[in-house]
């Protein structure tokens, strides 16, 4: 069953074409990679899916319903969550509060209950806390729940960002260069984690990555974007031997 269906997607910035006629289809439960040289338009695709930008042409269907025209928070409520290339945590808040904010969209009590401290508020807060801790435990951050997010080491900030995205209970998780800035060991651990998340949460995952070992190692299918166009797609083996891809990456290693 198709979960994400992008048809003829185009986006212009000041007359320059950033994306032209991009088609991308993801089936439910797949783990798909989107690769391409710098400036190819990968993050633009993500920004269009999550509603940061509006497409100039084309459609983005999620569960057979269009996402265009929706505000990002509506898209999140539909079941799409993401992380950012340059980590956007709520820096001055605690690790626990970062995750709790992601749980807000399903808050069980009303505003007046919070102001009057009614029993529904007390129960609601208890369940939010329990659930937030559950996500922190999965990512090994439980001991750091009271720490300020910006004080975490880089790798843990990346993990917290994924935990926060998962807490919105998405069906499609979009990861923007999750391994950026990680050493090979951390990247290895991350690969394990991504595989495990998909299985455990029964998710579909789309990821952008520069680290080829990660993409080739973890993704089942890969799309290659160059100059705003999809130039190839297929299983990792096909992509590795595709002459157009090698050309696009000339000078960069594809292995």
């Amino acid at each position: 069953m198709t979960i994400l269906n992008i048809q003829n997607l185009s986006k212009y910035f000041g007359g320059l074409s950033a994306l032209a006629d991009v088609n991308l289809v993801i089936a439910s439960g797949e783990l798909v990679g989107l690769i391409g040289p710098n400036g190819a338009g990968k993050t633009t695709v993500f920004n269009l899916i999550t509603g940061v930008y509006q497409p100039d042409q084309g459609h983005i269907m999620f569960d057979d319903k269009p996402l265009e025209g929706l505000l990002p928070h509506k898209i999140c409520q539909r079941g799409v969550a993401r992380t950012f290339q340059n980590i956007r945590l709520f820096k001055d808040l605690t690790v626990l509060d970062n995750v709790k904010i992601a749980l807000h969209k399903d808050v069980s009590y009303q505003l007046y209950a919070a102001i009057l401290r009614l029993p529904t508020f007390v129960r609601g807060e208890a369940s939010i806390e329990k659930e937030a801790l559950h996500y922190l435990r999965i990512f090994g951050l439980e001991d750091k729940q009271e720490e300020i997010a910006s004080s975490l080491p880089y790798g843990e900030q990346r993990r917290l960002e994924i935990a926060r995205a998962l807490a919105t209970r998405p069906r499609l998780l979009i990861l923007d260069e999750p391994a950026a800035g990680m050493n090979p060991q951390e990247t290895q651990d991350l690969m394990e984690l991504i595989r495990w998340i998909r299985k455990e949460f029964d998710l579909t995952i789309l990821l952008i990555e520069h680290d080829m070992s990660l993409v080739m190692g973890v993704c089942e299918r890969i799309y290659v974007l160059d100059y705003g166009q999809i130039i190839a797609q297929g299983v990792p083996e096909e992509i590795r031997n595709n002459p157009r891809v090698i050309e696009a990456y000339l000078g960069e290693e594809v292995s």
Binding site: L71, C76, A81, R82, F90, K91, I101, H104, K105
Partner: peptide, 15 residues
Amino acid sequence: ISVREDEVAAEMMGV
């Protein structure tokens, strides 16, 4: 508070 911290990220988290 999440609006103060990072409006874009807050929006993405469903706020």
